[in-house]
């Protein structure tokens, strides 16, 4: 066991951590509290750490100025589809690379890994032209197809492969003796056992899709198609300046649900992502 820390050292460490926490926690607090302050108070001096008066009309303006419900739905369903799709694609590919012997497996794996080297920003111009020709600009297809099948899913495939490599071969052999073919072994043995890896894939895929910004502003042009990150920046006044209180209210609505899910399931989040990192 580690050496016991002295009480003085303990106090110092707690103090240090509390100070360090400020830039991590305060912005979220400031966002939520400022969003309910009257516009006159949000730049008040001295800063009001706790609102002195409340103005909830900001929240109704969020929905009046833009089709915010629609935009919320866009972000949510795109992230859900991308997450499920990526889990399917990456678990299958990861399984095959880890477990099935087939010709050129290593070469193909190297080709797929190239995706890690080529961020989607590099290929954004040709992707734009491809989707333009396919009539898919100002639709959600680019935001769904590219993450599921393109570069972003490569990391997921890599994580799944690293997991399946550690799965005991005996389990699959037992399943073969028990009468299962490849697909059934994958579905009934490998996949149920891969839940921890799938959970981490789901978490980082969801966050990636939820945060996507460049792609939406390149591909989407009408407000009812927008996703949340893009929509948040659209609450501007006639001169293009941000309407801070409304932006903050919309930002709070965007951030809060994920934050709540995180706090409930923080163990799975943190350990899931640590797990992928270790293996990746």
């Amino acid at each position: 066991m580690k050496a016991e820390l002295s009480p003085r050292l303990k106090t110092f460490l707690y103090g240090l951590m509390c100070v360090l926490l400020i830039p991590f926690v305060f912005p979220t607090w400031w966002m939520a509290t400022s969003s309910v302050k009257p516009i006159s108070d949000i730049f008040a001096f001295p800063p009001q750490l706790i609102p002195e008066s409340y103005d909830w009309t900001t929240y109704s303006k969020v929905f009046e100025l833009q089709p915010f419900v629609q935009q919320y739905w866009n972000s949510a369903y795109i992230a859900a589809v991308v997450t499920i799709g990526t889990m399917a694609v990456s678990s299958m590919a990861g399984y095959a690379f880890a477990r099935i012997r087939f010709p050129f497996a290593n070469t193909i794996f190297m080709i797929v890994l190239l995706g890690l080297l080529i961020p989607s920003e590099v290929t954004i111009v040709p992707l734009f032209r491809m989707f333009l020709k396919a009539g898919m600009v100002n639709t959600h297809w680019p935001l769904i197809l590219v993450p599921i099948f393109g570069a972003p899913s490569v990391f997921a495939t890599f994580v799944m492969r690293q997991f399946f490599v550690t799965l005991p071969a005996e389990l699959e052999e037992a399943a073969r003796v028990d009468g299962l073919g490849r697909f059934k072994i994958f579905r009934m043995i490998a996949l149920p056992l891969a839940k921890p890896a799938l959970a981490s894939v789901a978490i980082f895929t969801f966050l990636h899709s939820w945060n996507l910004f460049l792609e939406p502003i390149v591909f989407l042009s009408s407000a009812e198609k927008f996703t949340l990150p893009q929509a948040l920046t659209q609450y501007t006044d006639a001169y293009g300046g941000p309407m801070w209180n409304i932006q903050l209210a919309a930002a709070t609505l965007t951030a809060l649900p994920v934050l709540i899910v995180f706090i409930i399931a923080q163990k799975q989040f943190v350990e899931g992502l640590a797990h992928t990192g270790l293996k990746g």
Binding site: L21, P27, T28, W210, V258
Partner: peptide, 17 residues
């Protein structure tokens, strides 16, 4: 949990605040 929390806050929301 607290040090990790900004990771799950929407990127643009974080940037706006």
């Amino acid at each position: 949990t607290l040090f990790f929390s900004p990771v799950v806050v929407s990127l643009v929301a974080w940037t706006i605040v």
